[in-house]
Amino acid sequence: MNSAPTPDEPAIADEVEEVLAVGSTSPVGRYRLDLATGEWAWSDEVYVMHGFEPGQVVPTTPLMLSHKHPDDRDRVDGVLLEAAETGQPFSSVHRILDAAGETRTLAVTGQGLRDPESGRVTELFGYFIDVTDSHRAAAARDATASIRASAQRRAVIEQAKGVLMVVYGVDEEEAFGLLREASNLANIAVRDIALTLVDLFSGPDVTVVPTREAIDRFLADPGAPGGH
């Protein structure tokens, strides 16, 4: 796309920078939409984001909407309609299905250009930013954190079961049953019951190992002040 930037384009620079903050290597492409014809002008990067070779297709609004993810299509259409009416700066993050059927995540930011005589919004212009890799990385980080937290929960429950197995001379299943019973009694998560129980034995302020009677009191009323 060879059209020169309009004087208004710096107004969306801050939004572009904000979106790019999620990943400095995100590909960026420019677009311009003629509201009278519904035709788009894309830079080479936008063609590639949609899975096409530069110039391979004529970008139109129906083509654009056909590539939007079904779950995001109505929302994106609404954003464009509002921008066409108001000309105000806008930004949105949505998924598309590219020409190969692959799901990609794009951020779009832009604003309207008004006709100086009629005052009507005649064009929308701005940038597409491919944030697919950034979103995948964020999802991977979330998944890793979730797995780590799950492992930590399991570890403290295993420790608590070990304590009860020693104190009461029961097997692993029976020890977990004691934890679950205390959980149901106090309406407190098993993991939190286990954490408090382990802390009774290994907390930083522990100087005397709790007696069986102390453990009995804790399991009978784990929500009591002080946890025991």
Score class of each variant (00 low, 15 high):
D71S: 14
S146V: 15
Y31G: 02
R154Y: 04
L106I: 11
Q111M: 15
F125L: 12
F218A: 12
L63Q: 02
A155Y: 02
R30Y: 13
L97K: 15
I129C: 00
A194Q: 02
E213Q: 10
S150D: 14
L63V: 02
F201V: 08
D133Y: 11
V163H: 01
A145F: 01
W42D: 00
I215C: 08
R154H: 14
D221S: 13
L178R: 04
G38L: 03
L200T: 04
T109V: 11
P222I: 08
L20Y: 03
R212L: 07
R154F: 05
V208G: 04
V57Q: 04
D77F: 12
F201T: 11
S26N: 15
E173A: 15
V108M: 04
L35Q: 09
L35F: 09
L63M: 07
A13K: 10
L20N: 10
G51D: 11
E117F: 11
D74W: 02
L97T: 13
L219S: 05
G112P: 02
T196V: 07
D199A: 07
K68R: 10
M49E: 05
P54D: 05
T132V: 06
A224Y: 07
Y127M: 06
V206F: 06
T122H: 12
D221T: 13
A100I: 03
M165F: 03
S43G: 04
A100Y: 14
V121Q: 01
R217W: 02
S150Q: 15
I215G: 02
P54W: 13
M165L: 06
T109C: 12
F176W: 10
M1R: 09
M1P: 05
V48G: 00
H94R: 02
L106D: 02
D130Q: 03
F125K: 05
I215K: 03
P62N: 04
L63W: 08
R95C: 06
S118F: 04
T105L: 11
P62Q: 02
D98L: 08
T25C: 02
G29L: 06
D72S: 10
P59T: 03
A182M: 04
A11W: 08
S66V: 05
M165A: 07
T60W: 03
G169S: 10
E45Y: 00
F201H: 11
E18M: 14
D133L: 15
R136K: 15
T6I: 00
E82S: 14
A155S: 09
G203A: 05
G226T: 04
A155V: 03
P5H: 02
A11S: 13
G169L: 13
L178N: 00
A4Q: 04
I147S: 15
A155E: 12
P59E: 04
T122W: 11
V93R: 11
E173Y: 12
I188K: 00
H228T: 15
A189C: 03
G55S: 13
T61H: 11
A36G: 15
S24Q: 07
A36N: 14
E213I: 01
Q152W: 06
V167E: 03
R95H: 15
V76A: 09
H228C: 10
D8M: 06
A214M: 07
D34H: 13
S183T: 04
